[in-house]
Every structure is written in structure tokens, then in C-alpha cells.
Write a protein that binds this DNA or RNA. Structure first.
Lengths: 261, 261
DNA sequence: GCAACTATTAGTCCTGTCGACCAATACAGC
DNA sequence: GCTGTATTGGTCGACAGGACTAATAGTTGC
């Protein structure tokens, strides 16, 4: 049943829609506005997304991107930050950008809902606590979602797909890569970010040459990390420089002979 | 007055919010959802934006970006296309992309409204007909808006600012530049797009060398255009090639000595 | 018809960037 | 101490791109 002839009333029963002069009440049907947050992290060299198993209708029992209704007293950004906080306990140090709005008719079978999707990139997720309305919460490889091996509620499959596309693009033009690593990191760790997301192989020597230049991409801390699993020279530890704020150091290889994998 | 305790009813008086099991009615306050379209074109070598003078409350008499309420039966993209059509008569051949959602509390003094902003780039606007709810409609230099010489209703100043920023960025990575020119164009026309938006000067010879290469940036039509105002050789006419679909030919000059203006 | 002018088009030089590759180094584990 | 591994430093060559000069092909004005 369509919701064309809907009026908005407040708790006093006053019809707010028609009482507002100059507005045609039929012209602004009410919508629910939700905020969904695609939480992405790098886990075991693989890009993963946090999904919750819905505990309520609609789509109860299915996997979905965490989210909730926006309150009139908060901004969209605030709502996204709140959802992220509720879901992961993480507050700051998370890159949180708006992806876009999704409002196809029927995307929520119950009512008119427009959702604003956000992308959050985290270095590491602590304990994942399912929210009050979720039965479960866990990390899933994005490859499984993109290839349809995990089907999601609503239009969340499309949202995740758009999120990954956004990540791949922003990696080339913004400082997004630094959101995947900690406050200090080795060049191998940072290089692994690019390699995992772009599915390419980058030459370690060239990577270093580009980042450890006169530009302020990375700043050496003087310390060294523990060596890798199979031994090897303990690598230098860096922290992010200021140059990331206005660009990215390396571009995505286009026609790479090596970057197959 | 806050709208916290609002219920949604349909024309039968049935309260739809509380009647949906599994939802907490207080959790999804109703919002109006509007779609605003930032319509941008190049006019007399200057970037301009289409603004309408509002004929109704709120902000009656002030300039604003054209827009309107989304209907539950249409997608967001459809709503944007409809608004563009209503405002300019243009349907296709317009680049129409979503900018983002804006939902700060109080952005509409009457009610909770979340707007989804779109960007439309047109080559040329025909007759501008003010919509039914607009008192006037005309093109304004974006510089006037950005520098605050024209103040806009709602948070539309921010929306326009974001739109211009998006244009500047997308010009570097997408085929956006071709949306500003017609089906056939001279290289000077195309170059003028970059120069107007980036506020730089590009060398005509280098510009040509990059675009008329083996890559399919532009395709010669064999025809020639009428010469410029003050005489000169009639330039070649080109049409867009296929390469624009997956990138842009030139990048924004960073530290240009010539690009001052 | 001719000169002056303008914008387009072609060609050259040179520098910086970047990929590919090789070699040296420094440490862990045995 | 030997071996293996990952980091680090260096070289070479291809290529793209900016600055610049020059030639070309038209129009406009006289």
C-alpha cells in the first residue's frame, strides 16, 4: 500500500503538515531516515567488513550493515559517530566519511526509509559487541560480499559495493591509507594496505623511495619494530607526515605486469 | 519546538508508526526528504550556478538551489532528474551525480528535513522558467556565492561550496570536463573548461599533444568551427572519445608559475 | 588584393618521475 | 657461524610533461 496520503501529526494531534502555510501537505510525505555505517578494516591481510545479524523485522536473521535511525537533534555525522561508537566502542581515530544516500522505493518493505551511508575505516577492532537490536556481529571478507557469497538485507549489498569502490578510489587521492595503520607503522605494513585493496604488488624499494623523500609523507621515529614472522631485518617505525592531508603518494598501477595476484 | 513525540498517520487516521511491530515508534521520527540540484554551467568563460528566488516560506524572497520533496514512489535519482527537468527543461545529456546528504538539525526551521544534494553539469541552459514555487530564476557566478556576496537560504551556501569542490576534484579524475561542452567542440573550448574551473592557464600546444594521442580522448570529426571573435585559424572540431569513461587526460597543475590569474 | 593579426598546430629540448632491477645490509633462528 | 628473510640503498632507462619556438592557415581591416 502506498503512503501517498499521509499526514504528519505531533503528540497533541495537531496536523503539522497542513498547518504549515505555503506547504502542500501531500508534497512532503514522511520518511524514516537511517544512518548505516560500513565499518572496514584490514584483518590478516584481507579487507573485511563488520556485519550484524538482524534480530528484528524486517530481514530478521539476515546479515546487514550496522545502522539506526537518525534523531532530529543530531547531525548526520553525529548519528554516524554514535552508531560506530555503539557498535565497536571506537570513537575517534576512525576515518568517517559520508558515502551517499539511498532511497529507492521499497528498499524497506515497511515504510519509506532513506538511509545515509557512511564509511568508517579502522585500524583494529576491539571486542565486537552486538547492539541491542542485533543477534550477532562479526567481520566478513569483503570479497564474499562482493561476489554474492553472503547476501545482505535491504540494499546493503550495493552499499558495501559502493564503499569498496570508494576506498579504492580514495586510496589514490587522499590520505585514506594511513587510517588502516596504527600511530606508528613500518613501510611494509603501509604497503600491504595498498596491495590488499588494489590487489597489486608494489616494489618495496620504490615504495620507500617515494615516501621517504623530502616531502612529508612519513616521519621516521628512530625506533624499530620486531622483525617479521620468518626473521629478517627489523624494520624502521614511521608515523604519518603532514603531506597526507592534501594528497596521496602513490597512484594505482594501471597496466602492471607484476600486479596480477 | 522539538518534534520528538511525533507519530505518523495515514489518511485513515491509523497510526502507522506504532502499528508496525518490532519498531519503537519514538525511534523513527518522521523527516521530510528533499532533493536539491546544483545546476552548474559555463557562461561567458565563468562558472555559474542556477539559483531560484523562493516564493514561499521559509526563506521567502531569498536565493536558493532549486529542489523539492522526494516522492515515495520515485528513486532519489529520479527525483533529481525530475527537478532538473522542471527547472530547466533539460532531460538527458546532463551529468547528474549525487553530492551527499545534509541533515543538520534546524536547517529547515519548520520541520525535520534531510536533503540529498545533486550536481548537474550542463553545457548550455535554454530558457530558464521559474518553477511554480519560485519567484525568479537566474544564473549567478559561483564566485559570488563562494565569497558570500550572495547569501542563500537554508544551508545551500555550503552545498554550493561542496559542489564546486567536487567539480574541481572530479575534473581531475573523471570525464566531467566533457559535460561542459557540446557534442562537438574545439580544443580551445575544452581547454577553457579546465582554465575556468581550476583558475590556471594551460599551454595550448601541450594540451593538444596530450589529447590528440593514440589514446581515445578526442576524435577528429574533420570539420572546422568558425574562427574566434578576432579572426584566426578556424579550429578543428572534435567529439569525445571513449577514454573519458575511465579517467581524465590532464591533472591539475600543482605549483604552476604561469597559472596565477 | 595586401598587410596585419590571431589562434591553431607542429616540433624540440629538457627535466623530473617512476618502474624494474641489482646489491648490500641487518637481524632471527638453527 | 651459517642460512634465510626482509629491509634498505643505488643505478639505469623509458616516458610523460612543462616551457618554448616556429610554422601554418585562416580572418579582418584597409
Amino acid at each position: 500500500m502506498p503512503l501517498d496520503l499521509v499526514e504528519v501529526t505531533n503528540s497533541d494531534g495537531e496536523v503539522r503538515g497542513t498547518s504549515a502555510p505555503g506547504y502542500d501537505p501531500a508534497a512532503y510525505p514522511p520518511f524514516g531516515v537511517t544512518v548505516d555505517v560500513v565499518i572496514v578494516t584490514l584483518d590478516a591481510g584481507e579487507l573485511k567488513v563488520l556485519l550484524v545479524r538482524r534480530g528484528e523485522q524486517p530481514f530478521a536473521g539476515e546479515w546487514a550493515v550496522p545502522g539506526g535511525f537518525k534523531q532530529p537533534t543530531e547531525t548526520l555525522d553525529d548519528a554516524a559517530r554514535r552508531e560506530l561508537q555503539e557498535e565497536t566502542g571506537v570513537d575517534a581515530e576512525a576515518l568517517l566519511v559520508q558515502l551517499g544516500a539511498y532511497g529507492d522505493p521499497g528498499r524497506d518493505p515497511r515504510m519509506n526509509v532513506v538511509t545515509v551511508a557512511y564509511l568508517a575505516v579502522l585500524r583494529e577492532l576491539g571486542d565486537i559487541v552486538p547492539g541491542s537490536d542485533a543477534a550477532d556481529a562479526s567481520l566478513h571478507p569483503v570479497a564474499d560480499v562482493i561476489r554474492g557469497r553472503v547476501s545482505l538485507a535491504f540494499d546493503h549489498e550495493r552499499i558495501v559495493r559502493d564503499a569498496i569502490e570508494r576506498i579504492r578510489r580514495d586510496l589514490e587521492t587522499t590520505g585514506l591509507a594511513t587510517a588502516f595503520v596504527g600511530p606508528t607503522f613500518t613501510l611494509s605494513e603501509l604497503r600491504a594496505v595498498y596491495e590488499a585493496i588494489w590487489q597489486v604488488e608494489l616494489d618495496g624499494a620504490n615504495f620507500r623511495r617515494k615516501l621517504v623523500g623530502e616531502d612529508g609523507w612519513v616521519v621516521a621515529t628512530g625506533k624499530r619494530s620486531a622483525p617479521a614472522s620468518e626473521g629478517g631485518k627489523p624494520p624502521e617505525l614511521f608515523r604519518v607526515g603532514s603531506a597526507w592531508k592534501s594528497g596521496a603518494p602513490i597512484r594505482r598501477p594501471r597496466r602492471s605486469a607484476r600486479g596480477l595476484r
